[in-house]
Simulated scan of single mutants.
Amino acid sequence: MATVIDGAGGGGTLSELYQNVRRVLLRTRDGMERLERLESSTAGGGLDSLELSDSIKRDISQIQSLCVEMDRLWRPIVAKPQRDLWKRKVEQVAEEAESLKECLDRYFSRNQKRMMEVKERAELLGRANGENAHVLRIFDDEAQAMQSARNSSRMLEESLQTGIAILSKYSEQRERLKKVQRKALDVLNTVGLSNSLLKLIERRHRVDIWIKYAGMAITLIIVISVWRWIR
């Protein structure tokens, strides 16, 4: 008997209203799924998303209106089991409508946030291309200065390594000269050369030592000069 109760506003029987609201619910859930797919796409849906969201919003409003009408119709039912059954059905529909409304509200919130982000990026780009473009130039100059400092540091390190290698070569040559000197002295002592020749060799050896130290000093001066020039 409850399913044939007429609505005062000409909305039909309770059963007809329930079937109608179920159809709208199915359509709304399907629309919400399509809206979320459009949101996940690269373009974001554009006008299609706007039209679909408006349609979903209207459907939810219709469901809520039907729930109000159904709530009015189930209350006069005399039989308690039937009245309780319709009460649960109406409450279930109302909960589904509220859940869909929350999903749509979250979508609008995300969409508004995206629009704000796009607007802020556009404003930042506009300022960067306009009155604040010099800030970008400052950052670029600083980046170039840092790169130049790294290059200078690398050149200095290479120069120091070269100087160390040169000094190492001088040290090896000195050891070889000492060995050669000892062998020459042994040979000269063996053949009995005169003391004057030995003294001449010793003087030449001292000259070679001074030449060696002078070369080392010049190398150090060159390395230090290069380092100061790079700084």
Rank of each mutant, 00 (worst) to 15 (best):
W86D: 06
D30T: 06
G45C: 09
Q19N: 13
E202G: 01
I138D: 03
L188V: 05
Q173F: 02
T219K: 10
R127M: 11
K89Q: 07
S171Q: 13
K212Y: 02
I218Q: 06
S15N: 04
W74Y: 12
K169H: 12
K169L: 07
K178R: 08
S148H: 07
S55W: 02
V24G: 00
A165I: 03
L66C: 00
R110T: 14
A94S: 12
R174M: 13
G10R: 06
H205S: 13
G45M: 07
A214F: 11
T3N: 14
D54I: 00
A149P: 05
L66D: 02
S109C: 10
L177I: 03
G7A: 04
K119N: 13
M70S: 04
V118N: 04
L167H: 14
T190W: 10
D48W: 01
S41P: 01
V24P: 00
S225L: 13
N20C: 03
I224M: 10
Y170Q: 15
R75V: 14
I56W: 01
Y213E: 06
Y213F: 03
I209M: 02
L193W: 03
L125Q: 13
I164H: 05
A133N: 08
V191K: 10
E16T: 06
R150D: 15
S40V: 03
R176K: 06
L124V: 14
V21R: 00
L14T: 14
S152P: 01
D84Q: 15
T162N: 15
R37V: 03
I166C: 07
K212G: 04
I201V: 04
I5E: 09
S168R: 14
S99P: 05
A43L: 14
F108K: 12
I60F: 02
L188Y: 13
G11M: 10
D6A: 10
S41N: 03
E39A: 15
A145F: 07
V187M: 12
Q147H: 10
E39W: 15
L193P: 00
I77V: 15
V187G: 05
T42A: 10
D54H: 06
R204D: 10
V93Q: 06
I166Y: 13
K80E: 08
S109P: 00
R23Q: 11
E69H: 05
G9R: 02
R75W: 05
T219W: 02
G192N: 11
G12W: 06
S55A: 13
S41L: 01
M70L: 11
V90A: 02
V78W: 05
D59G: 06
E33D: 12
W227P: 04
S61Q: 05
M146L: 14
L25D: 07
V223Q: 11
E98M: 04
R110Y: 08
A79E: 14
E39Y: 06
G192R: 09
I166M: 08
E117S: 14
L177T: 02
K212H: 04
E36A: 15
D84S: 14
E69L: 11
A79F: 11
Q62D: 08
S65Q: 11
S65A: 13
V187T: 12
G31V: 05
V226A: 13
G192Q: 11
L100N: 09
E98H: 01
V21D: 00
Y213D: 01
R137Q: 07
K199W: 07
I224S: 12
L197C: 08
I218P: 00
L177W: 04
R204T: 03
N151K: 10
E36N: 12
T28M: 04
I221C: 13
L167I: 14
L156V: 15
I224L: 11
E172A: 06
G44C: 02
K87Y: 06
N195S: 14
